[in-house]
């Protein structure tokens, strides 16, 4: 997983932070604040430098708007443009993400259960990832039009791969002794899958899902670039030639928030579904 997670260091500060090894659930609120304090301080420092640079180095607003100007634009354009755009993109991200979960876990389970299917399909699956996702956008737009479908497919395409890989890994790395034990305790292949293999694969699966959550917004934006009539990617494409740079930044901020929200949703689901992994006692 580390090689997949490594690609996200440029993401939003809080997301990068949460990709680090799991925090200790026994921490008090004060300790949590302390844990986040350094990255929050760096963020605030950067924003201050940015604000002063934009104001006092007479950088034109169409090149680098100040953070305060971005927030002002965000508020001013919220009800006219950004609200509906955020809603459209959020919908695309969520539907695409759920689709990728179903497809990713489903494909992984099938490939795990049938070794000959895995041998036939898995190399192709890995090979398919060499196709830059951005070139698929226009093709999907030609096939499905400017509606939500190509965006949802792009999100799902971008997200499903880490889920497939980590789920297959998780299913394959189940302790063989556990499977032997199940055989002597009346375990059938199905009951072994249900009661041992699938739960054992969950922690690994979730590390893929967390990575996928940070990819999802990218897929939606690519889809909107390829052809759309609303959404944050559409807003960015419209605002750029009009030199409305602060609007572009406002859209980026909202996209980051969508990513953070999705990531937090996944983390909460993980806490609920995989409480034992936090104990670090998977023998």
């Amino acid at each position: 997983m580390s090689e997949l997670e490594g690609g996200f260091e440029s993401g939003a500060v809080s997301v990068g932070h949460m990709l680090e090894p799991r925090d200790d659930p026994s921490m008090t609120f004060g300790q949590r604040v302390k844990q986040f304090a350094p990255s929050a301080a760096v963020l605030v420092g950067l924003l201050l430098v940015w604000e002063f640079a934009a104001r006092f180095l007479s950088i034109p607003a169409y090149i680098l708007p100040a953070p305060s100007a971005i927030i002002a634009t965000l508020i001013k354009k919220w009800s006219s443009t950004l609200q509906s755009a955020t809603w459209v993109t959020l919908t695309e991200v969520l539907i695409g993400f759920v689709l990728s979960l179903i497809a990713g876990i489903g494909i992984a389970v099938i490939l795990h259960a049938w070794a000959h299917v895995r041998r036939a399909v898995y190399p192709l699956l890995i090979g398919s990832q060499t196709i830059p996702i951005i070139v698929i956008g226009p093709i999907l737009a030609i096939i499905f039009g400017y509606n939500i479908v190509p965006k949802v497919i792009l999100v799902a395409l971008i997200c499903f791969f880490p889920i497939v890989v980590t789920t297959i890994d998780g299913l394959a790395s189940v302790d063989p002794q556990l499977k032997r034990m199940m055989k002597t305790l009346y375990g059938t292949p199905w009951s072994t899958f249900k009661r041992v293999e699938f739960p054992a694969a969950l922690p690994s699966m979730f590390s893929g899902i967390r990575v996928a959550a940070t990819y999802a917004a990218i897929g939606a934006v690519f889809g909107e670039y390829a052809g759309s009539s609303n959404g944050l990617g559409y807003v960015m494409i419209q605002a750029t030639p009009q030199m409305q740079t602060s609007l572009v930044f406002a859209a980026i901020l909202l996209l980051s928030l969508i990513s953070v929200l999705l990531f937090m949703l996944v983390s909460v689901a993980e806490r609920i579904l995989v409480p034992w992994a936090r104990e670090g006692r998977m023998q």
């Binding site: 556990l178 032997r180 002597t184 305790l185 009346y186 009951s191 009661r195 034992w276």
Partner: peptide, 26 residues
């Protein structure tokens, strides 16, 4: 035959009761 190895091989996601009930559920 029932087989019991050196490692307890209990399932960490199940309570102790659910672990002991595993053969019956199977």
């Amino acid at each position: 035959c029932a087989w019991m190895p050196q490692r307890d091989l209990l399932l960490p996601w199940r309570t102790v009761l659910a672990n002991a009930s595993l053969p019956l559920e199977n």
